[in-house]
Design a binder for these strands. Structure first.
Length: 437
RNA sequence: GUGGCUGUAGCUCAGUUGGUUAGAGCACGAGAUUGUGAUUCUCGGGGUCGCGGGUUCGAGUCCCGUCAGCCACCCCA
């Protein structure tokens, strides 16, 4: 027997329905928030990915050459480079802001773990051409909208928000050299997984003196991780004080305006690993810290330019299906298989069964065909039993709206599976009787 | 890529110090009660015990390798 390749999944009907359930929430939310769906190729030139992330990325990509060809390609590990490429090539004719969403599979050649596979479904939303804090908040609002749509509450998940410019200022005033700013951000990002001593020691390794590194760890201890919360009024007031660039104040004001106050906290240790984020950054985590990050994103104002477009501000986020599904399962929020199918509109309008007489048996196929021609989802039973009770049980299990019991070639009993009421009906009137009103 | 733990039916798991033809529940299918959704009973299909070697008269059980899953590192676009 062949096995599926490492880190990939087989989707049997129940599993695929669960994926669709998640994707439906993503799509509905995107559309309600005014985003338009786009897509690009599954694979790109390898260079598209190395431009942004350097050659180090190659070992984490599935790359290949066409037999006898010269170009090297790679399966997309993410969508942002494609998006930047697509935007850059039509930038002049696109509206500002442009709001795009995308929902397809990505491929990464990493070692799989819980919450991390080599092929997964990802959802991206991006607002391009708007550098305001309102756009930042609108982006987070869409992300939260999907979480809420799928049944998660502020008790279940936390949106950890930060701004790179703020912590860059903090690092600068602590004496960090501008040339190692990237390493400084990475250092902050490791705060939550290190003991204080190790954290301070690593801070010294990038050139901070131990007092300054320790001071930063004290600041983070008060504000980050489990202690992170919505910023106090006094903190926002001092952030917006005259003579300095306000960073947190406009962001949190915009988040509040979008009704996100109970979802979001300020966590200065969130820096994100990617080099290209320039301002607001955020991550979504399960509230108690279980599982990996559910989603992450931020502002990337230089990226479009890097891909050959005009200087264009942008903000966006990505969410994968893997961790989200684990969190839903952990919390008992993934409905049962039948319920998922029903919510996807996959339950039949009618199950047609026979009363067991040869005449009715012979009429089943024709009745099913007639109902389908009328645009209804009609099924027949494939069971051989003539036990009506068992067949009705079958109808209940597939959540059919009606069970049609053929009594003869012309007449039927129609049972409403919801109300349990039933009545006689001519075969010719069945489609009209069952049609959704 | 490095290290650790685990692999028995579709799922959850039994399987004695190595000993005949590897079991149960659920799920799936058929039948019984001659027509109404959670009942009961009977029967059935399904496993090269992840795969390959080795030790042994004999391996699901012990040893080695390999593959896969999980966990930590790495990375997290």
């Amino acid at each position: 027997m062949f096995q599926a390749p490492t880190g990939t999944r087989d989707f049997y009907p129940a599993e695929l329905n669960r994926l669709r359930y998640v994707q439906d929430a993503w799509r509905r939310t995107s559309i309600n928030h005014g985003f338009e769906e786009i897509d690009g190729p599954t694979f790109e030139h390898l260079d598209l990915y190395t431009v942004k992330s350097g050659d180090g990325i190659v070992s984490e990509l599935f790359s290949f050459e066409r037999f006898g060809g010269e170009k090297t390609f790679a399966l997309r590990p993410e969508f942002t480079p494609t998006l930047a490429r697509m935007y850059a090539s039509r930038a002049a004719s696109l509206p500002k802001p442009t709001k795009w969403f995308w929902m397809q599979n990505c491929y990464r050649a990493e070692r799989p773990q819980r919450g991390r596979l080599r092929e997964f479904s990802q959802w991206n939303c991006d607002i391009i051409g708007d550098d305001s804090a309102q756009a930042d908040a609108e982006c987070i609002a869409c992300c939260v909208g999907a979480l809420e749509e799928i049944g998660l509450s502020p008790n279940d998940v936390r949106i950890r928000v930060n701004n790179r410019r703020y912590v860059q200022n903090m690092l600068r005033s602590a004496g960090l050299d501008e040339t190692v700013m990237d390493r400084g951000l990475s250092w902050l990002d490791t705060y939550h997984k290190l003991e204080t001593d190790a954290f301070v020691k690593n801070g010294q390794a990038i050139g901070l003196d131990s007092d300054q590194a320790y001071k930063i760890s004290v600041t983070l201890a008060a504000l980050a991780g489990p202690n992170s919360k919505w910023p106090s009024d006094s903190m926002l007031a001092s952030d917006a004080a005259p003579g300095r660039e306000p960073i947190y104040e406009p962001l949190f004001k915009a988040l509040a305006a979008h009704g996100l106050r109970e979802w979001c906290v300020l966590d200065p240790s969130i820096a994100r690993g990617l080099a290209y984020y320039t301002g607001m950054v955020f991550e979504v985590h399960e509230a108690s810290g279980a599982e990996r990050a559910i989603a992450g994103g931020g502002r990337y104002d230089k990226l479009i330019e890097m891909f050959g477009g005009p200087p264009t501000p942008a903000v966006g986020f990505g969410m994968g299906d893997v961790v989200l599904s684990l969190v839903l399962a952990d919390k008992g929020l993934m409905p049962k298989d039948e319920e998922v199918a029903a919510r996807l509109g996959l339950n039949p309008d009618a199950l047609v069964i026979s009363n067991g007489t040869p005449e009715a048996d012979g009429a089943v196929a024709g009745v099913v065909a007639e109902l389908r021609r009328a645009g209804l989802h009609a099924r027949r039973s494939y069971k051989t039993t003539k036990n009506i009770g068992k067949l009705i049980q079958d109808a209940a299990k597939m959540r059919a709206r009606y069970c049609v019991i053929l009594e003869s070639a012309e007449s039927a009993t129609v049972k409403d599976m919801g109300t349990q009421g039933q009545e006689g009906c001519g075969v010719a009137e069945l489609a009209g009787r069952i049609a959704r009103r």
